[in-house]
């Protein structure tokens, strides 16, 4: 009896010592621990930095994380089907900004996001919306084979890709369907001016659809250049004769956001997870894998080899409303 009274007294004193918002957040943490589990629907497909964040969350809060990994379109359809069937199994989704926008346009799949304290630490250009908060970004650069491209010839601008010397020597992710290729195409259409994509098409880049293998094809010398090279994927190629270039105009990027699914079975754990993902330590795991963090105070802590990429200038993102026009333009330029 005495022990219980003591514990209650300590709790009250602790409560008095904390500001009101901290008390509120402590209530979220307690409720999350009581829920004991959070289910994440994501498209990380077992990426090591993502798994490291999950592990740190489990260690810190003792809440188990279940992650269902799917490719983007499969993830969106699975969420849509489950929600339509009244099966509310997932708590949080981590998916592209445009897909969340699409979900919002097509149905009622995403919950209005409750306050996430760490959202206050977002750095420009990242902003939270009523329904989602940025999680990480996938910037894209130019990958060159250092055995085939002399140091003096390495492109430093997106415009350099239109130099006649690269005609037929560029491998590219297909820019016509939805994906990284089209994201690059759409952002550069705005950034580089009207005729840039037409001039690039004149270089007759060869299209492929397997980004991971394509980078290796460039490393093996099949092609001199690969675009768009996702920064994080290039961080895995250390030791190969390739170099990732961040063009002076900046790197087009795709943004991944965190959102809470409708009727999430573990809403407090979901909220706590989103908060944890925006912690500087979590973001540092991404920065060390060459991805610019979305919160302040992280870039400077990144490993030396990751610094140039974590601090890269970003251009974009692509807008959902422009997609049909951009896909049509790409199809016109690459019949």
């Amino acid at each position: 009896m005495m022990t219980t009274l003591k514990a209650a007294l300590v709790a009250c004193l602790a409560g008095l010592a904390l500001p009101a918002h901290a008390q509120d957040w402590q209530a979220v943490v307690d409720a999350a621990k009581k829920e004991g589990k959070v289910v994440i629907y994501d498209m990380a497909l077992g990426a090591p930095y993502f798994l490291a964040v999950l592990k740190s969350f489990e260690t810190k809060y003792g809440i188990s994380v279940e992650s269902l990994d799917l490719r983007a379109s499969e993830l969106a359809e699975r969420i849509r089907t489950e929600q339509s069937a009244g099966r509310h199994l997932g708590d949080v989704e981590m998916i592209t900004t445009t897909m969340i926008e699409e979900q919002r346009n097509n149905g009622d799949f995403v919950e209005r996001l409750p306050a996430i304290p760490n959202a206050a630490n977002l750095r420009p250009p990242f902003k939270a919306t009523d329904y989602s908060v940025p999680a990480y970004v996938q910037p894209m650069g130019i990958l060159v084979n250092t055995r085939l491209v002399k140091e003096s010839e390495i492109p430093t601008s997106w415009n350099d890709l239109t130099d006649p010397r690269w005609q037929g020597r560029i491998l590219s992710d297909d820019v016509r369907p939805l994906g990284s290729g089209n994201t690059m195409f759409a952002i550069l259409e705005h950034q580089m001016g009207g005729d840039f994509n037409a001039r690039l098409a004149g270089q007759k880049p060869v299209f492929s659809r397997d980004m991971r293998n394509d980078a290796r094809r460039v490393a093996r010398g099949e092609y001199a250049i690969y675009v768009p090279q996702i920064f994080a994927f290039a961080s895995d190629l250390k030791g190969l004769p390739v170099k990732l270039v961040v063009p002076k105009e900046g790197a087009p990027y795709a943004e991944m956001d965190l959102a809470m699914l409708k009727n999430a079975p573990h809403p407090n754990a979901a909220r706590l997870f989103i908060q944890h993902f925006l912690e500087a330590d979590s973001q540092l795991l991404y920065a060390n894998a060459w991805m610019p963090p979305v919160v302040t105070g992280v870039v400077e802590r990144a490993n030396r080899d990751a610094q140039p990429f974590a601090s890269a200038r970003l251009i974009g993102p692509a807008r959902l409303a422009e997609r049909p026009a951009m896909m049509a333009l790409a199809k016109k330029l690459y019949p």
Partner: peptide, 9 residues
């Protein structure tokens, strides 16, 4: 493409 690479699918 029509399922995975169109917006919306």
């Amino acid at each position: 493409d029509s399922i995975n690479q169109r917006s919306p699918p």
